[in-house]
Structures are given as C-alpha cells and as structure tokens.
C-alpha cells in the first residue's frame, strides 16, 4: 500500500486531506473516527473579540455551489483559549488554529499567546474573509507583509496565510507573505459572489455579497494553486476550493498543493474527508506511487507516469 504521510510538509501529516477552516467548526460535532482520518483540522477562524456573525439567511444555493455569509461567528480569542482550545487539543488529528483581526498587532497578539501552546501544529492567518466589513487584507501585498511580519516575530509554529483567489493580486500577496516569513499559503478562500431574489429584485443576503464555495470554484482554486506552485517551487501550499471527490483531490495535488483542504465537501457530507483519504490511498497504490509527494506538482513536470 502507498503511505499517505507527506513529510515534505512542515506539519508531517498522516494524509494530505485536511479540514479547511469553517464548515468543520472546532471539530467537536464530527465523529472522532472521521477526524482521525484527516491529516489536520483547521479551526473556525477566531477573532480578538467574540463575533455574533451575520443575520439569516447565511446560506444561499447556487448552481454547483453555495453562497455563504457566516460572518466569522466565533467566541472570541479569550473564550476560545479557555473553553475550546483544550477540546481542540484532544482531537485525534493535527490542529491548525485559524485567526483573523483588523490590525496586524491584534493578530500578532493572538499568535504570540498561542506560542506557549506547544501541542498546536500551526496557525493560519485568515486574511481573506469575504463576509465582514473590514477590507480584504489579502489583496494588498503591503498589508499582507505587515500582518505576517508582526506574527512571524512572535511564533515558531508553522504559519500559513489564507489568501483570496484574486487572479491579479494573489501572486504579489503570496510573495509578500512568504518574504515576511510565512511557511505556507492556503489557497483559496471562498469567492465573492451575489444572488438576487428574482421575485423581488433584491440581494438574497443582507450583506449583498457572500462567499461562493463548492464545486463551482474548483477550477479557480486549481488555477491559483498552479500559479503559486510555478512561482514558489518551495512554498508549502494547502489547496482549498471545491474538492468533493478523489479526482478533485488528485487534481489539486497535481496542480502543486502539498495538502488538500475540504470545506464545502465536509458540510455536504461529514464522512467525505475520511473517504477521500481512503480513496487517495487506493488510487496511489493502483498507480504504483509510494506517496502523495510523488504526484505533488505533477502537472508542472509532465504529468503522471501513465503506463
């Protein structure tokens, strides 16, 4: 059998299938055996203060996807550390803590406080939530650099930066993140989208736009991951966006992702990530690959070894 562990990855994951920040919450509602079958869980994004999130409706159906407007609902950093973190540390997988703040010193303060917790496996700076009032930091390379610099100075944990899938700003923003000391990139967040109620002519979401996720954004995520891998051959990349089957996961790895984040897919079917892990192992074995590392970035170097 192929081994799924990806040692190239700073987190030394048991499988490249990871839970993306958001739909899996803090992992408590998922069955333990399903959590154990993924390489890591990225928590819901935690902010300095509690956030109630956006009013209903928060989810709107779209062709091949979903427009979401959760609005970073979370208990705030203090309550997270006190009440949630101990349970997160008990999860039978690696844990990446997702953080967001309006200012670089605020996110740095949280990153610094997490430094003492040696059992966490990484932090992810969410610089790309499309559903809050703050500017989307992740499209501005100078701001991205500043957020990462202040956090990098305060932690030795592996640090990932989650960026929007914006085709014009992603590469400069990613370069700024990596130059400022980020270990890796999480690509991409959900994509800004809009739906209008055709009966009344008004946006279906209170905040007008929301974040499009699901199979509709798979090609966008693949394009950004592919471009990032070409531009940064040594960066760690978690490719996230619209993967709902093993073929999608294989595409994401071939485009250059070291790990594949599952968001919408786990919302639709909580058992999907565990199934993807099993199916990926079978696929690698059938194709005589020893590990996922053998196919990461294959699209950049002649594809798979097809007999």
């Amino acid at each position: 059998m192929a081994a799924l562990s990806t040692r190239r990855f700073a987190l030394d994951l048991a499988t490249p299938i990871v839970l993306a920040s958001g739909p899996a919450g803090f992992g408590f509602e998922l069955d333990g055996s399903l959590v154990a079958a993924v390489g890591a869980l990225t928590t819901k994004t935690v902010t300095p203060e509690p956030r109630a999130g956006n009013p209903q409706p928060r989810l709107v159906d779209c062709p091949s996807g979903l427009l979401n407007s959760i609005g970073l609902e979370n208990p705030g950093f203090a309550a997270f550390v006190e009440e949630y973190l101990p349970r997160v540390l008990d999860l039978p997988t690696r844990r990446i803590i997702s953080l967001a703040a309006d200012r670089p010193d605020e996110i740095g303060r949280m990153v610094g406080l997490l430094e003492e917790i040696s059992e966490i496996d990484g932090v992810e700076l969410n610089l790309s939530c499309p559903n809050v009032d703050a500017v989307i930091i992740g499209t501005n390379p100078a701001l991205v650099g500043e957020f990462v610099r202040q956090s990098r100075a305060l932690t030795t944990h592996p640090m990932f930066v989650k960026l929007p899938g914006d085709s014009t700003t992603m590469i400069p923003a990613a370069a700024a993140a990596l130059n400022a000391g980020a270990d890796g990139l999480t690509l991409i967040n959900s994509v800004s989208g809009l739906r209008i109620d055709h009966r009344i002519g008004l946006p279906m979401l209170h905040r007008t736009t929301g974040g499009l996720c699901g199979p509709a954004i798979l090609p966008i995520a693949l394009a950004r991951v592919y471009e990032a891998r070409r531009a940064f051959p040594d960066a760690l990349i978690i490719g996230t966006g619209g993967v709902t089957d093993v073929e999608g996961a294989i595409e994401m790895l071939a485009a250059g992702a070291d790990a594949v984040g599952i968001g919408y897919g786990v919302m639709a079917d909580p058992s999907l990530p565990a199934r993807l892990t099993a199916e990926l192992e079978t696929w690698l074995t059938e194709h005589r690959y020893a590990s996922p590392a053998d196919i990461i970035g294959a699209a950049h170097r002649g594809g798979f070894d097809v007999p």
Partner: peptide, 22 residues
C-alpha cells in the same frame, strides 16, 4: 427553518439570535 449546511452544528450556517445567546 433555514437553509442548513452541515445539519450537525459545525458550520454555523443556521445560527440565530436568542435571549440566551446565539
């Protein structure tokens, strides 16, 4: 009723305000 996402309480797609919190 709301459009539910996960159905198990993790995605927070169906959160509503109540007197005792979200």
């Amino acid at each position: 009723e709301a459009r539910l996402g996960c159905g198990i309480g993790s995605c927070l797609g169906c959160s509503i305000p109540t007197l005792t919190g979200t």
